[in-house]
Each structure stands twice: as structure tokens, then as C-alpha cells.
Design a protein around this nucleic acid. Structure first.
Lengths: 249, 249
DNA sequence: TCAACTTTGTGCATGCATTCACAAGGGCTT
DNA sequence: AAGCCCTTGTGAATGCATGCACAAAGTTGA
């Protein structure tokens, strides 16, 4: 079933893609840092709107919900963009992070599966405001084809390759039932899509060079359930002990 | 703004919740393992449906998209449930993982914000099939109150506390716009909710003892954008070098 | 009963991420 | 211009996660 190994969640670290880097400066930004850059970016945008022009690492850390040392180390991977004694220039930092994340261009995104979730994603404002454009909607149900969601017409799955190529899509979002996901994924890859975000509750496999991330709603809930149960049983143990022995060590 | 520190994404490790454990056996399952248990669980369910009765760690690893040593180590935290030379009993393992994750009971979930995403979540089948029950839908828009989604009526935000208590909700899902999220979060916590899953694109703060996880669609896309750009620029560098100097070191 | 085979469970080494703590550096005030 | 104060940027220590490699343990077949 699985032709290729699928790394749990992180992007597939892509093993140098077969291309030897010019190796001038080592540009190895850790995955954990990349995952936090969008959070900083959002905080910075709202600071900019509020009229803040410079910000220190600990204020940014508070706004992003992390530790200030982490902020400084993360930002140091991008370069030395801060001023000692002052902090970081908000506008400049927004520019640098955006550039690093590749958000200075508008990526065309295709959403496959126009059910409840696909609909919600297509209408989600957060995409458009941050460098993404929903360029194609695709569904396997012919009765849906032609329907327009936010100005974008739904195309049929059979036309996926054509639509993807014509609209220059490089990122695909899978919002289909689990059973259809691997087939859709293969079609996307065959059509030249090199980054995929999977919402279907199933493990997908992709060839090397294609990045795959997943978002799984029910997994998140199950993780919460684990902690919820632990809390509940801790309380139960406490209550129990409390009735037997009120003196704690 | 942030009264309490918010750990980036992982559950808030809850600092012992003020309760000293009986400390009989050390039950410290690593966060990374907890996050993978639901994946194993899903793979096992589909194996069970296919009629498989026992499975070895490397087959399970393939189905879950991870390394086999990781599977064994993860499962060893739950206990010694495998049989050497044979593998794991699928049904028994499903039972043990479910128990560990607290899925033997049905958690009541409240979804706040019945917009596009809230609607999609309320109708998402994956919740009901895995130990969760959408017990309440809440929205701030009075024109939505009374509307039914999959048999559950929408209540008004003002009645949140009452609804949460009456239906025994312990897990809250926030699917509101970013601006409303912290207020909703505070209301949920005040009503006794101790686990929150946040879909709003903002950093929330919760008091100690409350677990918070977030799912951010636009962050996931931005991470893909980063890798996509890196691939694009690697190819560009390759093309460039290719025209100038076809001999690589 | 015994030997060969299979697979688990885990000690250990390695690598990545986080956090601390502080020197280096820049602005501001006098 | 000189010293004070503030904040960055980063070496170093610690902790967590991953993956290897193998002994321990069980099954199967003769």
C-alpha cells in the first residue's frame, strides 16, 4: 500500500531534492522555527495595524504566546534584523518574514472536494489575506460541477490535470472522504502539484520532492480527550485519597 | 493582553494540576507518542474491518506511515501488549489504546461559532465515530438561534454557561472569527470547560489546568509556501548554474 | 523436547529543540 | 564624549525524540 515512506507530519525534509546547494551561506532554518514564523507574522500584522513601529523580543513573544529567547533565536536564523537596545522594526520584520516564507508572491491553490469542509475552506478569508488564492475547486460529483463558490467555478475531477496546469496551481488541498484521498493525491502529483495539505483522515504517500502536511480534526480531539481523562482520573484519585487520608506528605 | 503563558501548540503539560500523584507506577507517556496513538488507532480500525486479527509492528508502522521502532516504543508505554514472534492482537490493542486515550466514554463537545467552518465541523462524521458527541452549538447571531444542524439546535452565546453545564460539555471547539475568540474562550473556561480546540487564527490564553490546542489552516499553508519557495529557488539556482557551469564538484 | 525462526521490548547513541545566561552592541542622557 | 541602560544575538547546557541494534521471549515444526 505505501510505496513511499511518509514522515509523520513535518514536511518531508526533502533530502536536498537532488540539487547540491551553492553552499555560500548555510540556510538551514529548523522546521520548528518555520512553523512559528507565521505566528510571529500574524502578531506583527496586528501590531502594525495598532500603530506600533518597533517591538522588543519579549513583547513579541507575549503576543505570539512563546518564550522570548525562542523569538530571538528564531529571528536570528533570518539574519540580524534587530537593533540592540531598541528591538525590531515591525514593518521591516514583516517584510523579511514574508519574504522568507515565500509570501511575496500569490500561490494558486486548488481545493479538491467541495463538501462541507471544502466549502468552508473555499470561503475562509484567511487564505486570501495571506498570499494565497483559491484558483480551482474540484469535485467528483458531476451535479456540483459549474456551481460557483466565491466566484470560482467547480470543475470535475476528470479535468483536474488540465485545470491545475491552466491556473498554475502548485499547492493542493484535499478535503475529500478518506477513501478518495490517495487517488486524488496521486492525480495532483501527476498534474505537477508539489505541496499538499491533507484534511482527509487517512495516511497518504507521496513521492520524494513533494511536501505533505496533514490536519486531522479528530486526532486533535483525541489528544484533548487523553489529557481530559488524565485530569479526571487525577481528580478521582485525589478525592479518593482525600476521604481516606487528609494528611499529605 | 496575555495574562497566562500559552505553550505553542502542545497541550499545556498542566504542571501536575496541583495534585500530587500516588506515584505507584510512573505513567509519563510522551506528548509525541500521545499524538501518534490516534493514528495507530485509525489504522487498527481499518485492519479490523479488513479481518486482520494480529499485526506485527512493521506492518502497523507501514499503515500508520511511521518507523517500526517508533511503533514498538510507543506501544511499550502502554504496557507489554504484544506477543513476541507473533505481533499484536488487533482487537485487544484497539481496546487498550482507546482506553488510554479516554475514548471508552463519549465526550460531549460544544462548538461555538456556527459559520462555514462551524457548520462543517458539526456535520463532520469523524467526531461521532470516535467517542465524541456534538452536544451543543452556540452562536452570537440571534438570527441563527434555533436553527438545527444534524439534530442539534443552535443556542445563543448568552446561554453558553447554562447549555454547557446542562449537557455536561467538557470540550469546547472555537470556530469564531479571531476577534471573538478570546471572549468565547473565557466564557467556556468560566462555564467549566477544561479542554479547548481553537480554530480561530489568534493566540489564546487560558488559566493553568485548561488544555488548549490549535488548528490553523493558514499557518499550514504558509509552511507549505516556505518549502515550495525553497524548491522553486533551488531549481532556479540549478538552472542558473547549469547554463554557466555544467561541471559540478 | 529441542532447535530454528520470528518479533517484541529496550538500552544506547545521536540529533534536534528549548532555555538559560551573558557578552557585545547600540541608543540616550547628561 | 562618556557612561548608563536596554536589548539583541548566541554559546552552552539540558531535555526530549528518534532510530539502531540486539537480547529476551514466544511460536512453530520436526
Amino acid at each position: 500500500m505505501t510505496a513511499h515512506e511518509q514522515p509523520a507530519n513535518a514536511a518531508s525534509t526533502d533530502a536536498d531534492g537532488g540539487v547540491r546547494e551553492p553552499a555560500k551561506v548555510r540556510r538551514g532554518i529548523p522546521d520548528a522555527t518555520v512553523a512559528r514564523l507565521p505566528v510571529y507574522l500574524r502578531a506583527l500584522h496586528s501590531l502594525a495595524e495598532a500603530g506600533t513601529s518597533t517591538i522588543a523580543s519579549d513583547a513579541l513573544a507575549a503576543a505570539a504566546g512563546v518564550n522570548s529567547a525562542k523569538v530571538r533565536k528564531d529571528l536570528s536564523y533570518l539574519g540580524s534584523y534587530g537593533t540592540r537596545g531598541v528591538g525590531y522594526d515591525v514593518t521591516y520584520l514583516i517584510h523579511q518574514i514574508s519574504r522568507e516564507l515565500g509570501l511575496t508572491q500569490r500561490w494558486a491553490v486548488a481545493i479538491v472536494g467541495v463538501g462541507n469542509l471544502g466549502h468552508a475552506l473555499a470561503r475562509y478569508g484567511g487564505f486570501a489575506t495571506r498570499g494565497f488564492r483559491v484558483a480551482a475547486l474540484i469535485d467528483a460529483d458531476r451535479s456540483r460541477v459549474g456551481e460557483r463558490v466565491d466566484g470560482v467555478a467547480v470543475s470535475h475531477l476528470d479535468d483536474l490535470a488540465q485545470v491545475v496546469r491552466e491556473s498554475g496551481v502548485s499547492i493542493g488541498v484535499i478535503a475529500t472522504p478518506a477513501g478518495a484521498a490517495q487517488d486524488v493525491c496521486d492525480r495532483l502529483v501527476a498534474a505537477g502539484v508539489t505541496s499538499i495539505l491533507n484534511f482527509a483522515p487517512t495516511v497518504l504517500s507521496v513521492p520524494p520532492g513533494v511536501d505533505l502536511r496533514k490536519v486531522d480534526l479528530s486526532i486533535e480531539l483525541q489528544i484533548l480527550s487523553f489529557h481530559e481523562q488524565r485530569k479526571a482520573s487525577a481528580v478521582a484519585a485525589f478525592d479518593l485519597r482525600d476521604t481516606r487520608d487528609t494528611v499529605s506528605s
